[in-house]
């Protein structure tokens, strides 16, 4: 029997998902024995025309990472959807936009204006901005157009599974790859590569009743004053753990820093930022409106903190003009 065909592709991503995939280590040799990796620009010289020449559905599983930021990303998302039986939105960018999705708090024009005009290192008085078409003496050069906003994969094509994490941790990647190789993937539409419940349920720190009188920015907390055993949120250090899906093993709190939510919202949560704002608000230990206002103001960047990974995939998804 022919080995199943896999593809790993990046769109507007950082390459971290590929590195995480390589972090399955010796299992990569098992994977090589069990499957044919037919396309993975990160590590292979596969020709693109080979993918175009494939029959529809010829690739068994495509792990698609990165968001949709420009025309090229969109084109390839559609092509791989067509050529793949199973399309997995792999990693936070493809699942919900991730940190590059924070660009939706600004506009394409503001981005281009900063990079090519206002940046202090750009040539003074520069009035050149990259063009979709440039005619040189020798011929025409073209660039793909940048979209207004960044979108997760499922906003542009039909997606069979989503797998969160920035990046997904290697153990989860192998678990999903194994399930795919043995035909044991759950029903279409499932979130894969996660554990039940929330980051808090995986976190080794002890939790008691949460009553917060003050929020503290992590670098302004004396390291000697941080209790290494106790819940960070109970110590006034913002942690998104309560609303975030388990799956990573609660890594960030182990080095004294709060979760920022790369595994996406826990089950049943529709809008991660709204949920977190509510959850954090409910633990403020005060009935005095003025004091509550003061404590809330100590959360310096609620949008960038609670929607760190989930902005593009959230209900609003972008800055409203």
């Amino acid at each position: 029997m022919a080995k199943p065909k896999f593809a790993v592709y990046w769109a507007a991503s950082c390459g971290g998902c590929e590195i995480a995939f390589l972090d399955i280590r010796e299992k990569i040799l098992d994977f090589d024995a069990a499957a044919d990796l037919v396309f993975c620009p990160c590590i292979m010289d596969t020709k693109y025309k080979d993918i175009e020449a494939m029959a529809d559905g010829e690739i068994d599983v495509t792990l698609f990472n990165g968001g949709i930021r420009n025309e090229e990303n969109l084109h390839i998302a559609r092509l791989l959807r067509q050529k793949s039986k199973t399309l997995v939105a792999f990693g936070s960018c493809a699942s919900e936009g991730c940190i590059p999705g924070l660009a939706n708090l600004t506009t394409r024009e503001e981005i281009l204006d900063y990079v090519y005009h206002r940046s202090p290192s750009v040539e003074p008085g520069n009035d050149v901005v990259p063009q979709m078409v440039t005619d040189t003496p020798e011929g025409r050069l073209t660039l793909p157009a940048m979209h207004e906003v960044l979108k997760p994969l499922d906003q542009v094509v039909d997606v069979d599974y989503r797998m969160t994490g920035c990046p997904p941790v290697a153990e989860q990647i192998w678990a999903v790859a194994e399930a795919a190789l043995t035909g044991k993937l759950p029903p279409k539409g499932s979130l894969v590569g996660v554990n039940p419940k929330t980051v808090c349920d995986e976190c080794k720190r002890t939790k008691e009743e949460k009553k917060i009188k003050s929020f503290r920015r992590p670098h302004l907390v004396d390291p000697r004053s941080i209790d290494p055993q106790k819940c960070l949120l109970e110590q006034g250090i913002i942690c998104n753990g309560p609303a975030i899906h388990a799956g990573c093993g609660a890594l960030c709190p182990q080095v004294n820093l709060g979760c920022r939510g790369c595994y996406g919202p826990a089950e049943g949560i529709q809008d991660v930022g709204a949920k977190l704002a509510g959850a954090i608000g409910s633990i403020i230990d005060s009935d005095d409106p003025a004091e509550i206002e003061k404590i809330v103001a100590e959360i310096v960047d609620p949008v960038g903190t609670f929607y760190r990974f989930g902005l593009a995939g959230s209900l609003v998804g972008r800055r409203l003009k």
Binding site: S13, G16, N70, R108, I111, Y114, R217, P218, D301, G304
Partner: peptide
């Protein structure tokens, strides 16, 4: 391609920058 990190880092607390700019490159 261009993702525009410089622009969307504006407004973020500076102590979060090491946790944000990592996503420029995995």
């Amino acid at each position: 391609e261009l993702r525009g990190f410089e622009q969307f880092c504006v407004g973020r607390p500076v102590e979060e920058m090491p946790r944000i700019t990592t996503r420029i490159c995995g």
